[in-house]
Design a protein around this nucleic acid. Structure first.
Lengths: 217, 217
DNA sequence: TAGATTGTTAATCGATTAACAATC
DNA sequence: TAGATTGTTAATCGATTAACAATC
């Protein structure tokens, strides 16, 4: 039984779990079956003690003297994150960025499938990206309800960002990834994640001038 | 004189500065000239005391009883981050993602200009994205040296990620933004930043199941 | 068994926040 | 002057790390 129900898990732990998972899946793909916290620490640039500490928040799934069974650990982390079952995604905006996201192989690997794509450009509506037909924006609410979609990706021009966000939230979406540089508001109960390449550039830029040259993950 | 020369600045501070900058530029665009830490805190979801504390690492540029002059603060933060002058970017990969990045307006606003684009698809070479002509990958080293480019963006298929990263680093690039899901290695002295939409999705996913519904920035 | 590595405690370290005197 | 808000100290809080007994 996960302890997660009773205990508050530090934000930092939740941020590191996907990184562990990524490496573990990669190792599993390479046919490795067991990994120590020392080795995992090397690969993720995280202190081994920290990895062990992080995992104990959810139970203890290692073997002393041996390490962690990779297959088991992958499953456990996926379960903790909620990545142990498929998730449908709605993508709004079928431009270059939207197309790139829809075609991103990494999504499928983790059980994410884009099952609805919207755009308001008449030239795009009816066209397909992969197996999905681009729908007009008007159909957003109905389609999301029908497919019971909880995750939305906003990849539209800045002007439309807030409006699209509002509509997604109103249609029952609980997690919104915002790929526009606009600061959008979301109602209580909706988790917003902003991805702004510039923000990230500015951040790394600091280290460019200071010459601290540390690798960031 | 910045104190940054002598003091170690916490990572968290450097992460928040771009967020402040973003809001400040937006406020400036709206014609606002002054902002208090309380107001800025509201807009960035950061504790006002924290904002003041963060800024004192670099000096004191507020006026008691008044707040911060936005124009001054923008300039100071830009200077701290190294965003007070133009930066040339090299983009490798002219697919959907590359095109999206090249066309991203936010870059220009902060003084970033993509001045070189590379791809190895003969169908793309010679074509243009904006004002930049797509060059063959072979010309990477020479062009980067000639333009003295320090920042590179990797937006190629996974298989090519490590190779492109190596070549960028060898050609003198100091900051690499990796948009592939591959974990690439960089030599000492090169700052790497990975942007993996899946990693971010997995992270927010945790909150989807736990129903903690907090907005992330 | 001997060697290895976990799980966990305790110590350290650093970051966040509250509070308030300084001062615009 | 009175009101507002900074800059800064001190207190709190939490996260990271070292260390080691437990145990595979």
């Amino acid at each position: 039984m996960d302890r997660a129900m009773t205990e508050r898990i530090p934000e930092g732990v939740i941020e590191r779990l996907p990184a562990y998972l990524n490496i573990l899946i990669q190792l599993r793909g390479d046919g490795v079956t067991t990994v120590s916290s020392a080795r995992l620490g090397e690969l993720t640039a995280v202190n081994p003690a920290q990895i062990r500490r992080d995992l104990t928040h959810f139970g203890s799934f290692g073997k002393r003297g041996v390490g962690y069974d990779i297959a088991t650990l992958v499953e456990r982390i996926q379960r903790i994150l909620g990545a142990d079952h498929a998730h449908r995604l709605a993508l709004v905006g079928a431009g270059n960025l939207g197309s790139a996201i829809a075609g991103y192989e990494g999504l499928r690997q983790h059980g994410f499938t884009v099952t609805a794509i919207f755009d308001n450009d008449p030239a795009k509506i009816g066209a397909r990206i992969g197996e999905i037909t681009i729908q007009p924006l008007e159909e957003l609410e109905e389609t999301l309800r029908r497919q019971d979609i909880r995750i939305g990706i906003v990849a539209v021009p800045s002007e439309a960002a807030q409006d699209v966000t509002d509509r997604l939230a109103a249609a029952g979406v609980r997690v919104i990834l915002n790929y526009t540089p606009v600061i959008v508001r979301v109602p209580q109960g909706v988790t917003l994640h902003n991805t702004d390449p510039v923000q990230e550039l500015l951040h790394t830029l600091y280290y460019l001038s200071r010459r601290e040259g540390v690798a960031h993950v």
